[in-house]
């Protein structure tokens, strides 16, 4: 309940700032889509029976979702924690530290699902989605959002300076999307990278997202969903504990 009240604050701010945040979360994946899809697409033959744009589109949907959760629960959280002291203000009210952090992650999750869905609508309008199974994608994006919100929050809970967030973006987020099967099939990668991808939440998400976009829902996809849930469940307690320690002394 407390977490929902915290979320309510964020939604109020979102009502005011959504244009700016949409700018970043929506335009960037569309630029990638245009540059890679049209530029590279002209040079690349069909992949597994899909045009390159069709292959790329689900990747951009998950990319947008990852960005939304990641930036909200890293830069956004850090600014509220360190500069705006928003959390301390909230903690003087009838909420716990856990409520505050859960509320942050809920916001990240929600933005993730929302912005991913916006990209989904755009690529669908471009005719890059083949199946109504894609209607299930927003649920997947919410799950993915929760995982990335928790991961970003975990890292943010450790750092004392906003500049350290660059390490997370460069050393975690960038490899996630460069090697996660967004721009090319992971089967082209060395075996060890393919194995490492099982720890990459974005890999699982994009596999499911692409299958749904093509109308190829299959029992095997539950493995990816299960691993996403498992990664999320494993990570979640850490940021809650660390942030609580940081806020309450």
């Amino acid at each position: 309940m407390g977490a929902l009240r915290v979320l309510n604050r964020h939604l109020r701010v979102f009502g005011r700032t959504w244009q700016h945040s949409a700018m970043f979360n929506v335009i960037e994946p569309l630029l990638y889509l245009a540059a890679f899809g049209f530029g590279m697409g002209a040079l690349v033959q069909d992949i597994e029976g899909m045009s390159y744009l069709e292959f790329l589109a689900p990747g951009m949907v998950t990319l947008s979702a990852m960005y939304a959760a990641t930036f909200e629960c890293s830069y956004g959280t850090f600014v509220r924690l360190q500069y705006q002291k928003t959390f301390l203000a909230m903690l003087a009210g009838p909420v716990t530290a856990r409520d505050v952090i859960l509320g942050e992650m809920l916001y990240g999750t929600l933005k993730s699902a929302l912005f991913g869905t916006v990209i989904l609508a755009v690529v669908a309008a471009l005719g890059l989605i083949r199946s109504p199974q894609a209607l299930a994608i927003p649920l997947l994006l919410a799950l993915q959002g929760a995982v990335f919100a928790a991961l970003a929050m975990w890292y943010t809970a450790y750092i004392s300076n906003i500049d350290y967030l660059n390490y997370y973006v460069t050393l975690a987020v960038l490899p996630f999307f460069l090697f996660g099967g967004l721009y090319f099939p992971v089967s082209t990668l060395p075996a060890w990278v393919q194995a490492a991808n099982y720890l990459n939440p974005l890999f699982h998400s994009v596999e499911v997202c692409r299958a749904l976009a093509l109308g190829q829902a299959a029992a095997g996809l539950w493995l990816h969903v299960g691993l996403l849930v498992a990664i999320g469940a494993l990570v979640l307690p850490a940021p809650l504990r660390l942030m609580e320690k940081r806020l309450i002394n």
């Binding site: 309510n8 604050r9 109020r12 700032t17 002291k85 909230m90 909420v95």
Partner: peptide
């Protein structure tokens, strides 16, 4: 009610919204 040492008002919100949102925190 708490008046903390440093002003931790919510700069993302207007004056009235600061109070309304805080009221929301109290249900």
């Amino acid at each position: 009610g708490v008046v903390p040492q440093e002003d931790n008002l919510d700069p993302d919100l207007t004056v009235a919204e600061n109070l309304e949102v805080y009221g929301g925190l109290f249900g």
